[in-house]
Amino acid sequence: MSLLDERNAETDGPPPLRERAESVGRDIAAQWADEVDRDARFPHEAVAALRAHKLLSCGVPPEHGGAGASLGELCEITRILGRYCASTAMVFAMHQTQIVSLVHHADSAAMVDFVRDVASRELLLASATTELGTGGDVRRSVCAARVDGDTVTLRKNTPVVSYGEYADAVLVTARRTEDNPASDQVLVVCRRDDVTLERTGDWNTLGMRGTCSPGFVLEARSSADMIVPASYADISSRTMLPVSHCVWSAAWLGIADAAIDKARSFVRAAGRKQPGVTPPGALRLAEAAGVLQQFSDLVFASAARFDATIVEHENPSGLGFSLAMNNLKVTASTLVVELVTKALLICGIAGYREDGPYSLGRHMRDALGAAVMVNNDRIMANSAQMSLAYRGTI
């Protein structure tokens, strides 16, 4: 029995989270995945289904109207969705990263009310953390929060806002004030009705096309009590970075699952044609299954590590923890490409073709985005600096 099954077996409430996720993935996301990819359009149908099944709010604590899902459970849902549509899985993953960040760091009355509203209306949250003029460093901002009484305004030129046009609120990073240094950042919650997005580019990418992540000049007005009290540096190191690396990796794991499923079906079909003869791809399939198991163990062990720090009220922002989460992202983004490639070799030309049941084109293109979604070279450079100072074991 899975984490999600155990949580729901004790209640007579809605279907288990796993069952709901499987229903959304199999019945809705899979049906539209190719069209979402081909047209680079937002997966409206799948997100509507996530909302209808109350999965957008599953990371919100029960006392605020959600299901109180742990990070491990969020990863399991993301993995299920990733098997059917990687773009849907990534939208879910990025949304939940914002949810968990608010739950752990936004404890003011106004923020608690906002989280309750998110849960009651199944609102979709996006984020705007990257910015032109910072060299890709999300821990610095040119944009500043301008507070005038109870009102805060900001203007941010960002190269990427994933599904920003379709979100109900955007969490925006900005300098605390115009006089503060670029590294002194806050996180501002801006409801979509108070946000203007002027598109500065298109989202014509190799993969992950349904995340709809073009650049925008973002202008927003919010209230001063919608500035998260904690510093963004603390939010990022303690929550946003480890959570994002775990759920992103779970989405990539789902892509790998789908690819290996296709490879397994191909080998079984070959075996049925020649009973008693082991198909040529069987050995490679067994090797791939072993790598997939290692991949899965890595993702869920990392999520469990985060969940344990929350339960035990420990600080998850030490060097060893940060190194482990960096290693997770880099390793997962490498393994997903390795596994899709193995599946392609097993399926051969049938996997290379775009018009058959074993097609792996979308999976390969989605997988290749993993290494550049926060570039692995940037992450490893950061890890190299931390490694020089760290004396313990990861």
Results as ranks from 00 to 15, higher is better:
D261F: 07
P280N: 13
D257A: 00
L283P: 01
R284E: 07
L283G: 12
W248F: 13
I255F: 04
I255C: 06
R284G: 02
M240R: 09
Q274L: 12
A282E: 14
R272F: 14
Q274E: 15
A270W: 01
G281D: 05
R268E: 15
R284F: 00
R284Q: 12
K262P: 05
S244V: 01
R272D: 14
P280H: 13
C246K: 01
K262E: 06
P279A: 05
A269D: 15
W252S: 00
A258V: 09
A263T: 06
A258E: 09
A282F: 04
S265I: 06
T278M: 12
P279D: 01
R272Q: 15
S249H: 11
H245M: 06
C246N: 04
L253D: 04
L253S: 03
H245V: 03
T278S: 12
K273L: 13
R272G: 15
R268V: 15
A259T: 07
I260E: 01
A258Y: 11
R264I: 05
A270R: 12
V243Q: 07
G254R: 03
W252E: 04
G271R: 01
A270D: 09
V267D: 04
V277W: 12
W252G: 02
P242I: 02
P242Q: 02
L241M: 13
D257C: 06
A263I: 09
V277C: 08
A270F: 01
W248C: 05
P275Y: 10
H245F: 11
I255R: 00
G271V: 00
L283H: 13
A258S: 13
R284C: 01
L253V: 03
R284N: 08
L253Y: 00
P280I: 12
A250S: 14
M240D: 02
G271L: 00
P280G: 07
A250D: 11
P242W: 03
L253N: 06
G254E: 08
V277E: 15
R268G: 10
W252A: 03
W248Y: 09
L241T: 04
S265L: 09
V277S: 10
G281Y: 08
R268D: 15
Q274W: 07
P275C: 08
C246G: 03
A263D: 11
R264T: 15
K273Q: 15
S265V: 06
P275D: 09
L283Y: 08
T278F: 05
A282I: 03
F266H: 14
R264K: 14
V277I: 15
S265A: 15
G271S: 00
H245T: 11
V243F: 10
G271M: 01
A259V: 09
V267R: 05
C246D: 01
S249W: 02
G254K: 04
R268I: 15
V267A: 06
D261V: 11
W252M: 07
R272L: 15
C246A: 13
G281F: 00
P275S: 10
L241Y: 04
R268C: 13
P275K: 10
V267K: 05
W252F: 08
D261S: 12
P279L: 04
S265T: 13
V247Q: 07
L283F: 11
G276R: 13
G276I: 06
W248L: 14
V247G: 04
K262Y: 08
A256G: 08
M240H: 04
R272A: 13
P242F: 04
G254S: 10
F266S: 07
D261C: 09
A269Y: 11
C246M: 02
A258T: 08
V243N: 07
G281A: 08
K273H: 12
A250Y: 09
T278C: 12
R264C: 14
L283W: 09
